[in-house]
Computed example of a mutant assay.
Amino acid sequence: MASIFTKIINREIPGHIVAEDDDFIAFLDIMPLVKGHVLVVPKKEVDYIFDLEPELLSGLHLFAQKVAKAMDKTINCTRIGVAVIGLEVPHVHVHLVPLRTMDDINFTRQKLKLSQEELSEIAEQIKKGF
């Protein structure tokens, strides 16, 4: 069964996509820790990040760097935090989280509930950074 991320990649369900190439996609987390929380995902569905082929693993991080630089340009934050948890969805994903404090990347805190309009606005804002 395809992961929810594969369904976004295949456009079977909507996602607020901020960047995409042949191998990777980046979209907003719909239950973000903070506004602008982005997930960077390889299009190839693999459950565990260290099971990725070396080229795909390095490519994932290089793609995430491009997305983070766009976020830096367009989101008011101190820096972009990076986390790989891998327990929520069985498809490799890197969290890019705009940070103002250490607590902004605390995955045990309550997630935000943003409207589709807010998510669309944030996605468009990030896209302007490319």
Rank of each mutant, 00 (worst) to 15 (best):
A2Y: 09
L33T: 06
S3W: 08
I9F: 13
M1I: 11
R11L: 07
L57Y: 15
F107R: 03
G15L: 03
D51M: 03
I13S: 07
H37E: 02
F24C: 09
K66P: 10
H93M: 06
I4L: 13
E53Y: 05
L33A: 06
T78I: 08
L60E: 06
M102Y: 13
K66S: 15
H95T: 07
D103Q: 11
K111T: 13
G36F: 08
L87G: 08
T78H: 11
L99D: 01
E20G: 04
E20I: 02
V94K: 00
K127F: 03
F50D: 14
D104F: 06
V46I: 15
E45Y: 08
S120D: 14
V97Y: 07
I80Q: 02
I85A: 14
E45C: 08
V92W: 00
D22K: 14
L60C: 09
V40L: 08
L96A: 09
K35G: 11
I126K: 06
E53F: 07
V82S: 12
K43Q: 11
I122E: 08
L114N: 10
T108C: 03
T78A: 13
I30F: 04
I85W: 11
V94R: 00
T101S: 14
K66Y: 10
E55D: 14
D72H: 09
G59Y: 02
L96K: 08
T74Q: 14
K7P: 00
F27A: 08
E88H: 12
L112Q: 14
L112T: 12
V82D: 04
N10L: 11
M71L: 12
V38A: 05
V34P: 06
I126T: 08
E124I: 02
I105L: 11
D29P: 02
K66L: 12
L52Y: 04
M71N: 09
Q125R: 15
E88Q: 12
N10A: 12
K44P: 00
T6F: 07
D22R: 10
F63T: 00
K113A: 09
L114H: 11
D47R: 13
L96F: 09
P32D: 10
F27Q: 04
R100W: 00
K69S: 13
L52D: 01
N106Q: 06
E53P: 07
G86R: 03
G81S: 04
T108M: 12
V46Q: 02
A2H: 12
I126C: 07
D103V: 07
E117S: 13
A83C: 07
E55W: 00
V18M: 08
L28R: 07
H37R: 06
A64Q: 04
C77A: 13
K43A: 10
A26L: 04
I105Q: 12
K69G: 04
